[in-house]
């Protein structure tokens, strides 16, 4: 069963260099478990049926109550299976934790409730774009609470911890799209902190990287703003169609007056938006939780201008 890289009943398709390795140990344990479980339960059922008391006063056929030989005999296979699993588990783990020196590096920031993948050319994206056939190393940190980067198809998982870096690496052979989950509980929209790994061929990846650089120069500000807000996860909480989210919707919001949590009124203008991006907790709209992370130092001035242009355009 484990010679296939296609999805099976138990495991999703194998898409990274780690996957076959993990699956081999998984299926080793799986068959060891199935065999020992069936053997034990079969023996148990057999004994229960065969030695059932017919008369309540029937004595047991034997009162033998110990055998050191027997104890050792069944301890040994347990040890053996454990030793094999331990050995391969450690070998696999070490290789998963040791990125090659020539790996392509992407910086990852996790925050409630989105991912930011940061490339050397300054571009930040909400999905992870990587080239196929090249080892990729992620250096990750969180801005707020614990998150965890998980791609089932890669068999890769690593917690993303605030105040420190953690790392993960993998190499994907075939281009395609794969699901990223957050697997460390992080609050309200933990289950919607999803993203995709988009694996390009090496050439396509280069083209993509060039095309996403300098969007501010290439696109009109409204479109650049929309791209930025999608990539940075703003739209995960603020809808643009009027739906109620964790934060207020942007639909038709520009220029309106809103009530803040401290009771004062505030017009939705440039200053307000800028302030809310830099210091979100300072002017919370009444009725919404104070959960937005700050983007201070993460968005350039020009980028904020583009975002404002986009918000203005949502009628």
């Amino acid at each position: 069963m484990w010679f296939t890289s296609d999805p099976t009943f138990w495991m999703p398709a194998q898409a990274s260099n780690h996957a076959a390795l993990v699956d081999n140990i998984y299926y080793f344990l799986y068959w060891a478990s199935v065999i020992s479980f069936v053997a034990c339960m079969f023996a148990g059922a057999l004994f229960v049926l065969k030695y059932r008391a017919k008369n309540i006063n029937d004595k047991a056929l034997s009162q033998v109550d110990h055998s050191t030989t027997l104890e050792l005999t069944w301890t040994l296979p347990v040890f053996a299976v454990a030793a094999v699993a331990f050995y391969f588990g450690v070998m696999g783990f070490v290789s998963m934790k040791t990125p090659p020196d020539d790996a392509y590096e992407v910086n990852v920031t996790a925050y409630k409730w989105a991912w930011a993948f940061n490339y050397a050319n300054g571009h930040t994206d909400g999905n992870l774009h990587i080239p196929a056939g090249v080892p990729v190393k992620l250096t990750m940190s969180s801005d707020d609470v614990l998150h965890s980067f998980y791609v089932p198809a890669f068999r890769v998982k690593q917690d993303v911890v605030p105040g420190r870096y953690t790392q993960a690496w993998f190499e994907v052979t075939e281009p395609g799209e794969y699901q990223i989950f957050c697997t460390e509980y992080c609050g309200t929209k933990h289950s919607e902190m999803l993203a995709k790994v988009i694996v390009h061929t090496e050439d396509d990846f280069k083209k993509w990287l060039d095309s996403v650089g300098n969007i501010l120069d290439r696109l009109p500000p409204e479109e650049a703003g929309k791209m930025l807000m999608t990539q940075r996860g703003c739209l995960a909480c603020h809808s643009i169609d009027g739906a109620k989210g964790v934060g207020p919707t942007f639909k038709g919001s520009w220029g309106t007056t809103r009530k803040l949590a401290d009771g004062s009124d505030q017009v939705m203008d440039e200053n307000y938006v800028r302030q809310s991006i830099m210091e979100p907790q300072s002017q919370i709209v009444a009725g919404f939780p104070p959960v937005m992370p700050t983007f201070k130092g993460k968005l350039e001035d020009r980028e904020i201008t583009a975002i404002i242009a986009f918000i203005k355009s949502i009628k």
């Binding site: 940190s141 105040g163 420190r164 870096y165 953690t166 790392q167 130092g297």
Partner: peptide, 14 residues
Amino acid sequence: PMVQQRQADLAKAA
């Protein structure tokens, strides 16, 4: 080391 590196980067950003 992973902690110190991050703390240094955060201090730089601040």
